[in-house]
Design a protein around this nucleic acid. Structure first.
Length: 533
DNA sequence: GTAGGGATAAGG
DNA sequence: CCTTATCCCTAC
């Protein structure tokens, strides 16, 4: 779809919101490098390369990207106190009708406006890493025999503009399991037991075609359903009878019905050399929580706080069959808000974690390059999750803020569930919003980009140095809708606000949130407050 | 003993 | 193949 909106390079391509997500920071000082900054789907320089290109004393950059910086693979300490001043949207006025933030917050993928020295957050998948499970990427590249590795894509840096652009943004390719893979899987199960999918996946003795541990489990469930089910159903008689493969002959027979059935018959398994039953791995059985348990858990929490062992021991509550950590886990999913309130952790670390999560997702840690907005932030269909966390226990990660609490200051329409079209915020909104933290330089830079706070939501104008040449696999929904969305300017009452305002920094916001111990934000200013201040 | 977060099971 | 609830591992 040709367009000549800006610059010579844009002749053949009209940028979409995805492009703007991935634009280099326009206030990045090194304009000479601009030419080398490419859209991720067209070969944005790898993060590592960008890191090397940058000055070594860029602390924030090192904090985020430098593998040498010491970080626990587990939880991040709240003491990692690099602060980021990010704008926080005002929360809804309780008396106002709920407004929904546009489902696509493109700007969130953009570097902080005052981080001009930073490269763009790349959504490009690390190029050497085949799309395996992220945790094992290192293994697959370093620890595995070279012949088992996929050819590193870095080997073709000459055409950085092509490969990533060809890949579908989502949806892994469906690949049939080969006999060799299946055989390896079964051998792995024989060696490590049912359930040790990650171990099997990581074992150098076996090779799989870009499978995940989940894939292994699914495959085993398909090709050995009787073994799988038996182990699930017979925890007490765990791992003994040799007959589990012939246990469900009716099922095996069903395989004659269609050629598609892939269940391996006992004879076939024997033929393959698997004469021993597959054994389970020591994992406790799942026990769903009853409503009574949930209620007792809440009571226990009110009585003992987050002393889960105390709750467990409380004779009134009868949780002896649960572990303390189980109670914590259940409470965490069943009563996320209560749980969050119980955490002494500072809101800033929550924010940082949310930021990290976004960054991780944006950097393509999973198998796809699709620059997706974190689901918690965009999924308008999921907004019910915020209001009914209990019903389905849906919320497992706490978003930085709830969609239901976002207040934009005016009526946005009567959308509810199926509000057709995504709404795209110009990422420059962040450039503008962060101007207060950006000192004069950032401020100037923002001004230079012509950012008008009320107009930033209009269709963004591409920057001449970063117009991609083509994105054939861009999701059509995104391509089609980018230009048809309402701008914030059209949403807000005309002339209601001055041209420019300054949002308080995120840390200020967080500070006020900490004071009341929760993220409800009663202390936070409304948009009107911001404009009037 | 608890928190954070990864792994797995289960269901769609 | 995806999502979510539950279980598990490990740092603190």
């Amino acid at each position: 779809m040709p367009s000549a909106s800006d610059g010579a390079k844009s002749d053949a391509y009209r940028p979409t919101s995805i492009d703007f997500i991935n634009l280099p920071n326009p206030i990045e000082p090194s304009q000479p490098q601009a030419g080398s900054q490419k859209h991720p789907l067209n070969g944005t320089p790898h993060l590592e390369k960008a890191r090397l290109d940058k000055s070594s004393n860029n602390d924030l950059f090192k904090l985020i990207l430098d593998p040498s910086s010491e970080r626990s693979p587990k939880r991040q300490k709240a003491s990692e106190n690099t602060t980021l001043d990010l704008p926080k949207l005002p929360v809804r006025n309780p008396t106002s009708k709920r407004l929904r933030i546009p489902p696509t917050l493109s700007g969130l993928h953009h570097p902080p406006p005052d981080a001009g020295l930073l490269p763009s957050i790349s959504v490009e998948q690390p190029q050497v890493i085949p799309p395996r499970q992220p945790d094992h990427a290192f293994d697959s590249v370093v620890a595995r025999p070279a012949e088992q590795r996929e050819a590193p894509r870095e080997a073709e840096p000459a055409k950085p503009d092509e490969a990533p652009a060809q890949r579908p943004p989502k949806a892994r390719q469906r690949r049939k399991w080969s006999d060799q893979e299946t055989h390896d899987l079964l051998q792995g199960v024989a060696q490590f037991g049912i359930g040790s999918w990650t171990k099997i996946l990581n074992c150098d003795d076996y090779s799989f075609n870009n499978r995940t541990a989940l894939d292994l489990k699914d495959r085993f469930r398909v090709c050995c359903p009787s073994s799988y089910k038996k182990l699930k159903s017979s925890k007490s008689t765990k791992g003994d009878s040799t007959q589990d493969k012939s246990e469900t002959p009716t099922k095996a027979k069903k395989s004659n019905k269609g050629p598609a059935r892939e269940e391996l018959s006992p004879s076939k398994l024997k033929e393959l050399g698997f004469t021993q039953p597959f054994v389970n791995v020591g994992r406790r059985d799942r026990h769903e929580y009853s409503a009574a348990e949930d209620e007792a858990l809440l009571r226990g929490f009110k009585r003992h706080g987050n002393s889960w062992s105390s709750i467990r021991k409380d004779p009134d509550l009868d949780f002896t069959s649960r572990r303390a950590a189980d109670l914590r886990d259940r409470f965490r999913t069943r009563y996320p808000e209560e749980y969050a309130k119980s955490q002494p952790k500072s809101a800033s670390s929550v924010a940082k974690r949310a930021i990290e999560d976004s960054a991780e997702k944006a950097s393509g840690s999973e198998s796809d390059v699709a620059p997706e907005v974190p689901k918690a932030l965009l999924s308008s269909k999921d907004d019910t999750a915020a209001t009914r966390p209990a019903a389905t226990g849906k919320t497992s990660r706490l978003p930085l803020f709830s969609l239901d609490e976002v207040f934009l200051g005016g009526q946005f329409g009567n959308d509810d569930e199926e509000n057709s079209e995504p709404i795209v915020l110009d990422r420059r909104i962040l450039d503008w919003a962060g101007a207060d933290a950006g000192k004069s330089s950032s401020n100037d830079a923002s001004r230079n980009t012509g950012i008008d706070p009320l107009m930033t939501l209009n269709l963004p104008k591409p920057h001449s140095h970063t117009v991609p040449t083509g994105l054939p696999s861009m999701p059509s929904a995104i391509q089609n809708n980018t230009n048809s969305l309402p701008s914030l300017a059209s949403v807000l009452p005309e002339n209601a606000y001055p041209d420019q305002i300054e949002l308080p920094s995120l840390m200020q916001m967080l500070g006020s949130m900490e004071s009341d111990g929760r993220g409800g934000g009663e202390n936070l200013p409304s948009l009107d407050d911001l404009f009037q201040s």
